[in-house]
């Protein structure tokens, strides 16, 4: 029933606000099943707000977020999570007072389907070694692994990775990029926001560029690489 290539997520006319400030203007995007899509733009372009709006952590004022045709816009995060969207937030938000395993188990508590712990640990052997360490005792890279592991434990239809490589040492970034590649190769649908343009373009097959809350470009990453004025104007490269 679930064929790769068919539309999984369709976002239309999304408008979000922080208080009175209008942040997103009619954002539209589609993500096909099994696809990795990058969301690019400068700081403050609205990338994180888009991710939070898809998750319901920011409630969009208008527009639709359809997952397999079902409109999720306006629902609470736990209902959107139950439908199969899972955000890995920029701040990671690992539970510091819980140990690694408790963090993963908690994520799976309410999931309709979930990864067994062994499968999570097979993807992140480092987390298995640290399974009884508290969240606060983890390095930044380990926290990011845990944040991703927690999302995967819920076996989501689509994972939203918000700045997964931010502030991490290059060797850790390298390792995480490989992990995300493995996930993509296994058919996991991913939307990734990333400042590290090389990493983002290396992962994604298509990209959307946001500027001041508007989608100003969409295309394949190959096309984007060949469009230096977009890269220059909106991404400062």
């Amino acid at each position: 029933m679930a064929k790769p290539g068919e539309t999984l997520l369709a976002v239309e006319g999304l408008n979000s606000y922080y208080g009175d400030s209008h942040i997103l203007f009619d954002v539209a995007m589609t993500v096909a099943r099994g696809e990795v899509v990058a969301l690019l733009g400068r700081n403050g372009a609205g990338k994180s707000t888009t991710m939070k709006s898809l998750m319901g952590a920011v409630r969009p004022r208008s527009g639709s977020v359809k997952l397999e045709g079902e409109d999720l816009a306006g629902r609470k995060p736990h209902r959107i999570a139950a439908a199969g969207i899972q955000l890995v937030p920029e701040e990671r938000r690992v539970f510091g007072s819980l140990n690694v395993e408790e963090n993963i188990v908690l994520a799976g508590v309410s999931a309709p389907a979930r990864w067994p712990l062994d499968r999570v640990y097979a993807m992140f052997p480092r987390l298995k070694e640290r399974r009884l360490s508290r969240g606060t005792d983890l390095s930044g890279g380990e926290q990011q692994m845990l944040a991703i592991a927690r999302a995967l434990a819920r076996d989501p239809k689509i994972v939203l990775l918000d700045e997964p490589f931010e502030g991490l040492a290059p060797i850790i970034v390298h390792e995480l990029v490989r992990t995300v590649h493995e996930l993509a190769a296994a058919g996991q649908t991913i939307v990734v926001v990333e400042q590290n343009l090389a990493a983002a373009l290396g992962l994604a097959s298509r990209a959307y560029v946001l500027n001041n809350g508007h989608v100003v470009y969409e295309g394949t990453t190959a096309e984007l690489r060949a469009t230096p004025d977009v890269l220059h104007r909106y991404l400062g490269v």
């Binding site: 952590a57 995060p77 819980l98």
Partner: peptide
Amino acid sequence: TKLGLIVRAGIEDAGMVDILGVDVG
């Protein structure tokens, strides 16, 4: 217990518990 796990996580960051699919209400 699982309830306790949710409560301890909720004490730290109730919003993230919600994102992880638990009805914090």
